[in-house]
């Protein structure tokens, strides 16, 4: 059982505070969904968690070990994987080579192909030539081969056809059921809430809601209010 705990985390961009004192938890076997309007600070939070941006304050713990001062590579070796938005494949490498970059000693390539059999036929193709959906499958499978305990996924559905998004969501649910802790940032709120366990909503860099996904999915008006902050109006 892995436990990823974020306490009072603040992250700045160009010295401007974007994320302020955020606390949340992701646990093995569960998907924590992080929702919010554009500019709420979701991507900045994830970049602070994986070390792309240094954190300005607070703590990040993975299984009791503090990792917020470590470089991204060390956080990865501690068990934190980050699937960035924008489908960051290595364009000049083939599908198989992309997977090998992240392959840890304990992992096997078969795990990637088992999760996304579509990639088997495309193993010798340069990743830059894959479709958007295949590229997204590749970056998720590649992260999986690092044998993570926690998987951060940022906007995996952006620009993809609904049928592909559903396929990806099902794969993410499967990974959680196999024991991964997942923190999913998503624009497709309804779909994300349908596969998620715990929901967090961010607005202006702060968590304004923490509850069960099912409960939030049943009250779209409440979700709308949380996104836009209409209670303040």
């Amino acid at each position: 059982m892995s436990r990823f705990v974020i306490s009072d985390l603040s992250v700045n961009r160009a010295e401007l505070p974007v994320v302020s004192k955020v606390s949340l938890v992701a646990e093995s076997g569960a998907i924590s969904v992080l929702l919010g309007a554009n500019g709420a600070g979701k991507t900045t939070l994830l970049e602070g968690l994986s070390g792309i941006i240094p954190v300005a304050g607070g703590r990040i713990e993975l299984d009791g070990r503090e990792i917020h001062k470590a470089r991204p590579g060390l956080r990865s070796r501690e068990g934190l994987a980050h699937v960035e938005q924008g489908r960051t494949v290595f364009r000049q490498l083939t599908t198989e080579e992309n997977l090998k970059v992240g392959l840890s000693r304990e992992a096997e390539m078969a795990q990637a192909y088992d999760l996304f059999p579509e990639l088997v036929q495309r193993r010798a193709v340069r990743a830059g030539l894959l479709s958007g959906g295949e590229q997204q499958m590749l970056v998720i499978a590649r992260a999986l081969l690092t044998r993570p305990k926690v998987l951060l996924i940022d906007e995996m559905s952006a620009g993809l056809a609904p049928v592909i998004v559903t396929r990806l969501m099902n794969a993410v649910r499967r990974l959680a059921d196999e024991g991964l802790a997942i923190l999913l940032v998503e624009q497709f709120a309804a779909l994300a809430l349908s596969i998620g366990d715990r929901a967090y909503v961010m607005r202006r860099g702060r968590i304004v809601h923490d509850g069960e996904c099912k409960a939030l999915a049943r009250t779209p008006d409440e979700l709308h209010r949380l996104y836009l902050g209409t209670e303040a109006a």
Binding site: S50, R71, G73, E84, T88, F90, R91, G102, A143, T146
Partner: peptide, 10 residues
């Protein structure tokens, strides 16, 4: 190709 993506993979 992508230094940060490589670093994120360890």
């Amino acid at each position: 190709d992508r230094p940060m993506a490589a670093e994120l993979l360890g």
